[in-house]
Simulated assay, not measured.
Amino acid sequence: MTGTPDPEMLRQAVVVVAGPTASGKSACALDLATEFDGCVINADSMQVYQDLHVITARPSAADMAKAPHSLYGMLPGREVCSAMRWAEMAAAEIAVCRMAGLLPIVCGGTGLYIRALMEGMSPIPEIPEEIRQRSRSEMEEIGNAAFHARLAEVDPVTADRLNIGDTQRLCRAWEVWEATGRSITDWQTEPNVRLIDGTFFPILIAPPREELYVSCDRRFDLMMDYGALDEVRALDGQGLPEDAPILKALGVPELRGLLHGRMDRAEAIRASKQATRNFAKRQMTWFRGQLRSREILPAQYSESSRSEIFAKVRHFLLTG
């Protein structure tokens, strides 16, 4: 690195590599980690799970050996990882990086996770696992309509703004009320709490849509070659509840449909690719509207863009 970085700047610096699926985020983060002596911290809501490696495009063992990586594959599929839970774990990992003299490089496509870390969240306490499990069991037992009506009795304001079919948010609202005695709407009026101080340098990788779609399709074909179906078969055999977040990972619903005879192989692959492209489009819309990026790379990350990204990060570390 040319020049001498401000030591205080280095202690506060956090690089964020964000963007849609299949845009090259992991490769960019790895290159940055090897160039700037960094640690890659996962910010993908599906890559936190142990059970899915291939179909979530987790970094390979070879890549993870090139630089420190954290928060990859560390939760069982039965657990729920909220944005606040992830942000707490990420803040702890950033503190570890700083103690070791490593540059934290947060990498992922889950916008709510990244926003929770950069901007903070309402200070809702962590919900005990037994309350989470009980609320989901009750939802399965009585159904969405009755569960929504039960929520409306104790928290009519939140119930009024939630769709009856929104299982995840209904359960979350009930869990918060049961665990704290306060409405989630009430909690959300509290000032956000940031879990870690830092000077963030967000990089948004934003390829043209058609280029991104080609990358999505090509990567899914590779996933199938590398054993994605066997991975989903093993996951399917665990008997997870149908609302488990891991079962919503891209490609999992469609490949489960193949395993259960609801689709043939060609249909499952076609539907998986379409779901991935749709998701990538939503991610891009979210990031462009919600992430205050310091830099935008308007192309797929590749060797040709490496020097440009390196120069911008180097300038950030020198000047803040």
Rank of each mutant, 00 (worst) to 15 (best):
Y72K: 06
E93N: 01
G320I: 04
D236H: 06
T110E: 10
E210L: 13
M284P: 03
K273Y: 07
A29Q: 02
I246M: 13
G120Y: 12
L112T: 15
R306E: 08
T167E: 12
G261A: 15
G198H: 09
E129A: 15
L117N: 10
A62T: 06
S304P: 03
A90Q: 05
F147L: 00
G3S: 08
Y301T: 10
P156K: 10
A280Y: 09
E88V: 07
L75I: 13
R134F: 11
P207I: 09
T56D: 07
V17R: 01
V96I: 11
L255N: 00
P241F: 09
A13P: 02
L195F: 14
R161E: 14
L162W: 14
R233Q: 03
Y113N: 00
I127E: 14
C28R: 12
C81Q: 15
T285G: 00
D243A: 11
T319Y: 05
G181P: 06
P202Y: 08
G3Q: 15
D155Q: 03
C107E: 12
V54M: 05
V106D: 03
L75T: 08
V214P: 00
L247N: 07
G109F: 07
A67V: 06
D230F: 00
T319V: 07
D230C: 08
L247Q: 02
V157F: 08
E79S: 11
P298K: 00
Q300T: 07
I131C: 03
A22D: 14
A149H: 09
S307K: 04
A152Q: 07
P125W: 09
I124Q: 08
S302K: 05
C171Q: 11
D31F: 03
R218D: 02
I309R: 01
A116N: 00
R288T: 15
W286N: 02
A67L: 10
L71C: 00
R306S: 04
I269C: 09
F36I: 02
A22R: 13
E119V: 01
T110R: 06
Y213D: 02
D230W: 11
P208Y: 04
V14R: 14
E93L: 00
L291H: 10
Q188L: 02
P76G: 11
R172Q: 01
V17S: 11
V157R: 15
E210S: 06
L102Y: 04
Q50C: 08
E175M: 08
A100N: 10
L10M: 09
H260Q: 12
V252G: 01
E267D: 11
P20V: 02
A83F: 00
R136H: 03
V252Q: 05
A92L: 14
E141L: 12
G120W: 01
M84V: 10
E178M: 02
E119Y: 08
A228G: 12
S82Q: 03
S183A: 11
A275L: 13
V40L: 05
R233H: 05
